[in-house]
Design a protein around this nucleic acid. Structure first.
Length: 264
DNA sequence: ATGCATGTTACATG
DNA sequence: ACATGTAACATGCA
């Protein structure tokens, strides 16, 4: 489910628990989400702490504790974060639950493609400090964008936009939305782009990311009908620009939705 | 039943 | 070493 804007939405779902003492930590310790950290150590280290700060970087989330704990959560394909005050919440897929005085912070993930990272240190862990510039950052300039493309001349646009070390936070639907906005066919190779097309692509990457964050916002807002997003999910959708049928095909191993007469 | 799902990555290939 | 493509991961749903 989650790409950049949705990840930031889920991060904010845990705001209600910031500053509260964690009285109890429970995990499903055998699951795949703990492939890169020790859940026993996590439970022991986190109990008694307070989450004091949260931020996102692309699809990665970070929660810091008042005792130098760094909790990283990636939502994978089906992960979500929630806050509940109901004692009898369904914890069937809850891999991590932090109990506080006022309620429970929950990380669920049905398919377990998500992951939990944790360490205690005064310095940020390498998985947080060694991250590329974000799309919305001033560092993500047109010059920087061009240097990224120069090393990916043979790549198709769609799979390239999904590379997280280049474009943190872009996922399958955002990549399609960006290419649709830029009027570029997803199978185009980077080396075929003219300068004007590279400029448009850079602008649309920024624009789609910014608008997505605004639209999803704090309340999981609806995307406008004028977006590809509202028409892409199943066969039979029509392009909001041309009214013609959208095409769905596999490009770079992922289902890609695009509008052939609109995108070249 | 068969194929597919808004993600990442180890591995294979050139 | 680098760029690119593919399979695999776990689970439920159409």
């Amino acid at each position: 489910m989650p790409e950049l804007a949705e990840v930031d939405y889920f991060r904010k779902q845990w705001n209600s628990g910031l500053g509260l003492r964690i009285s109890r930590v429970t995990t499903h310790p055998w699951t795949r989400v703990y492939r890169d950290c020790d859940p026993v150590d996590l439970v022991a280290s986190l109990a008694g702490n307070r989450l004091v700060h949260s931020e996102t970087h692309g699809k990665q989330m970070l929660f810091r504790t008042d005792r130098s704990g760094w909790l990283g959560i990636h939502l994978g394909m089906t992960g979500s974060l929630s806050w509940t005050t109901q004692v009898d919440f369904d914890d069937g897929y809850a891999h991590l639950v932090l109990q506080t005085s006022d309620g429970w912070l929950i990380f669920e993930d049905l398919r377990q493609f998500g992951r939990v990272l944790f360490e205690v240190n005064s310095e940020p862990p390498s998985w947080w400090s060694n991250l590329p510039p974000e799309i919305m950052d001033v560092e993500f300039s047109f010059d920087y964008f061009q240097t990224l493309l120069r090393r990916r001349l043979g790549a198709q646009l769609k799979p390239m936009l999904l590379m997280q070390d280049l474009f943190p936070g872009i996922g399958n639907w955002m990549a399609d939305e960006i290419l649709w906005c830029a009027r570029l066919a997803p199978s185009r190779r980077v080396r075929s782009l003219h300068l004007a097309e590279v400029r448009t692509l850079h602008q649309k990457i920024h624009w789609v990311a910014k608008r997505s964050l605004e639209i999803v916002g704090d309340d999981w807002g609806e995307f406008p009908d004028a977006w590809l997003f509202k028409h892409r999910w199943k066969d039979g959708g029509n392009c909001p620009k041309t009214g013609k049928p959208l095409k769905r095909e596999r490009i770079g191993g992922r289902t890609t939705c695009w509008s052939p007469s609109w995108q070249q």
